[in-house]
């Protein structure tokens, strides 16, 4: 569905993205994650044919994103990160113009989406709040039921209820075989919604895998509370337990590899409490990125 091969794009001397390669299969909710300025929007702009790639290739539906942009966009719905719509427009006019450009009647679909998202399409853009404009942008991106939906930080001005409603809708679309390319800097949101994630940082791809694999690679959060601080003092932590905190009777760190090794290590020792949990995506990402920066993968 979406394929990037060594995609590179610079802005003069400044690097935008560097040799990004990834592929997104059909029917996937794909998270594209990274902090602000990491290169997410640049990648999306290349995908949409706004920017010409400096090197490498970008394809959607097997078509070149620069040369065959028009054909691609028949089946793509896009919501820009910084959505601007002409202020004179209201939702009805926008739907009518978008329908005329696309050569189809979007009235019914947009009315249903308007009801779902709680947006009155008769309100003019100039009178809309940022959240309302975002809803209208979503309606315009979704109304023609595209095969691929590219959303650049779509929930940034939506309230939690609306976010939930959008997530449900996206899950429903993915289940029906539509593909969602979901760009965000909110790790929790992507974790909640997407099955696969690519993480981009400083213009480079630092991870591209399923959450399950990513968590596996990052290890488990571990907290050990010893019966006595004196017990802990004399102990040397094993090499598969990377401690981030060691205070009195409490050890906190990351377990790399299977849990039974830790259980074996602790056997016979005076442990008061042991907690092994899955790391949340925030800490996973932070830790993962720090390791990438350090060069140890």
């Amino acid at each position: 569905m979406v394929q990037l091969e060594n995609l590179t794009r610079h802005y003069g001397a400044r690097r935008g993205i560097e040799r990004i390669s990834l592929s997104v299969a059909e029917g996937v909710l794909f998270g594209f994650l990274g902090p602000n300025g990491a290169g997410k929007t640049t990648t999306i702009r290349v995908l949409l044919g706004f920017l010409r790639p400096g090197g490498g290739a970008a394809r959607i539906f097997g078509l070149d994103c620069w040369r065959e942009s028009k054909a691609i966009k028949r089946d793509v719905g896009y919501l820009p990160g910084d959505l601007h719509l002409p202020s004179w427009m209201n939702g009805v006019a926008a739907v009518s113009i978008f329908g005329a450009v696309r050569g189809c009647d979007l009235t019914q679909a947009s009315r249903q989406l308007g009801e779902r998202f709680g947006l009155d399409l008769r309100v003019k853009v100039r009178d809309m709040s940022r959240g309302m404009r975002q809803k209208l942008g979503l309606i315009l991106a979704l109304a023609h039921s595209p095969r691929l939906l590219v959303l650049d930080e779509p929930t940034i001005s939506l309230d939690p209820l609306m976010q939930q409603s959008l997530h449900e809708h996206l899950r429903h679309l993915a289940a029906a075989g539509h593909t969602v390319f979901f760009s965000s800097h909110s790790l929790g949101e992507v974790e909640q919604l997407c099955e696969r994630v690519a993480i981009v940082r400083d213009g480079e791809l630092v991870a591209d895998e399923s959450f399950a694999a990513l968590r596996q690679r990052a290890g488990f959060e571990v907290t050990i509370r010893w019966a006595e601080p004196s017990h802990a003092l004399g102990l040397v932590p094993p090499e598969f337990l990377k401690l981030t905190r060691r205070e009195g009777a409490v050890w906190q760190g990351t377990l790399e590899g299977p849990a039974h090794r830790l259980v074996d290590y602790l056997a016979g020792k005076a442990v008061l409490e042991l907690t092994i949990g899955r790391p949340d995506l925030e800490s996973l990402f932070r830790r993962f990125y720090q390791r990438e920066k350090g060069g140890a993968r």
Binding site: L48, G49, S69, K70, K73, R74, P80, P86, F98, V101
Partner: peptide
């Protein structure tokens, strides 16, 4: 300048159109 070019060019039209 007003940021609306993204919206129009995300539609299935060529720039020449």
């Amino acid at each position: 300048d007003r940021g609306t070019v993204d919206v129009w060019l995300s539609l299935p039209v060529s720039r020449w159109e």
